[in-house]
Design a protein around this nucleic acid. Sequence first.
DNA 1: TTTCAACACGAAAACGTTTGCGCTAGTCTT
DNA 2: AAGACTAGCGCAAACGTTTTCGTGTTGAAA
Lengths: 346, 346
Amino acid sequence: MKRKVTLKQIARELDVSISTVSKALRNSIEISEDTRQKVQAFAKLYNYRPNNIALSLKNRKTKTIGIIIPEIVHHFFSKVISGIEAVANKRGYNVIVGLSNESFAKEVINMEMLANGSIDGFILSIAKETQQQQDYHHFTETINQGMPIVMFDRVVNDIKCDKVIVDDAEGAKLAVNKLIQCGCKNIAIVTTKDYVSVGKLRTQGYLEALEDHKMSPESSLILKVHDQLLSEDHLDSLEIEIENLFKNNKNIDGVFAVNELYAITAMKVARKLGFKIPEDIQIVGFTDGVLSKHAVPALTTVSQHGKKIGEKAAELLINNLEREDEEDVYETVVIETELIERKSTK
Amino acid sequence: MKRKVTLKQIARELDVSISTVSKALRNSIEISEDTRQKVQAFAKLYNYRPNNIALSLKNRKTKTIGIIIPEIVHHFFSKVISGIEAVANKRGYNVIVGLSNESFAKEVINMEMLANGSIDGFILSIAKETQQQQDYHHFTETINQGMPIVMFDRVVNDIKCDKVIVDDAEGAKLAVNKLIQCGCKNIAIVTTKDYVSVGKLRTQGYLEALEDHKMSPESSLILKVHDQLLSEDHLDSLEIEIENLFKNNKNIDGVFAVNELYAITAMKVARKLGFKIPEDIQIVGFTDGVLSKHAVPALTTVSQHGKKIGEKAAELLINNLEREDEEDVYETVVIETELIERKSTK
DNA sequence: TTTCAACACGAAAACGTTTGCGCTAGTCTT
DNA sequence: AAGACTAGCGCAAACGTTTTCGTGTTGAAA
């Protein structure tokens, strides 16, 4: 087992100085053709590769991006990661992943672990608990220390950083408009509590769409799912809540769900109650994941283009990192949503 | 924007030496109570944190694990990552992710990028293309350079490293036995080409289960899906292949699919052809993902316990990294599979 | 008063790079 | 032949740590 070879070892072996070796490898004109050849041959033979850590220390940049997301076993987030990874790799960056598990404490710890030199900047989506507590000091602090952040999807407005979001309200309007256009008169929404920023925005879009069509929203049609973070038997209670929604409002003929899981659960419950989809009840979801695509009937849904979000976030971050002038001008990029029409609407 | 504070700056500010600051912060008894307090107070005030990169360079270990997987937008792999991340974090390690996209070249490049000091060891699952080409030099090389590897799921036997696998053949037998026990007489299998190790093993298990019950396998019931790696319209051709399987074998009353996607596609096609599930045809899948759970009817499937695989892999790697004695003794851990019975079987 | 241990701290090396600058010897110019 | 120039290479600093080994100052013991 031969350890990785270093400049020093090559230098000793070839009886030249470390600097000579380094320069020879980088094709410096200071070095004679002879020595250069000799060094390069030797380096190739021993498969020399510069030590990244040493380079990071010297250059004070790591060429690594830190990602903090609430969970990874989630179609949207893994899509985003794949987008980030694609452009990061293309531009010579690595990607290091931390999971907050929706916990404030883990988010803070993870960021602290990475912020001490391990990475050049963050791409993150905020944990639910953080949104609930509205404690954002860890973001401002890292930014103050000169480490840029790009937030995506779940963002907080008053932090000075780049952001990549979808127009959640607009996407929701797309969905609800579709339902209205397909003849729905009593459209329910299955959404989250308001502290989840995206849920709130989508609810808002739902309300706006109704208003645009002179339909007055009814509070009994708005289900804000009790979200206990510990999603174990969460699924059961979700079903029960939705079932009650249907039972208390027999006239529902359309459902807009703010995420995929809510949507297919609604579909499942509706079918259990004897409704036909899309004949009796039409359903539109949000987030184009694997569930929507393979549900029966396939779910009409609003696609967020997760991969594109990731790509854009990575671009913003890397551009920022490699920008010469240190002007603090922050962008908020809105990725277009798109209604993907499938079989759960007429 | 204040940059991160270093020992040197604290030293200058307090008019002591760097060593004193370092020792004071680590509560060395060499330092007087007075100075210690002073230094610690100052450090706290300026929120000093040791630079990870410098530590990595000095200690020649990064406390970081490199993960290379074929794709991340995949329930199983993200489950594994979440498992790795959990134990890595608990033991003070970070996790850096590289995606091979099933490509040999990207796998090699990614490994080279990380192997130059960025990480202490690898956890990986081999790209399909690599399995096809059977070129494993990048694995042996990294191992030779003293960097340990743990392989999971898709492994190659003759590499000397720890491995975490499920007993694919055994899991497949579980599935097929279930079908037999539920009265199936003509059981088809939808599997991959043989170069995918797990596909091959699961096919093997299928054959063994049949033999155990004195049922002779028929080659027309074995569909090895043509897998063109570029899975764009892959889905369509998959449907067509499965449809042909059914049409050419009208007597099929049970299907074992080696992954989730194949399983629910089989379900979809069967239903399209007018079969009732599980009355006419029963189906069992492999991998307990989100699709299985939410399919209608919910899919009976073999769970691999992806998270547990990740946890075990991380444990093996970290134990290896932190072991004093350098003995090369490699383990292959088999994670139990489990049949999760749902509604697609009687 | 001398000697010596204990105490408190600093210098420097090491991890592996890159790079500006200085040095030496040989060649060219006049 | 003396000075100027240049090719080719090495020294040393720097990045931020930790740690070993001094070193100087005290106070007390002899």
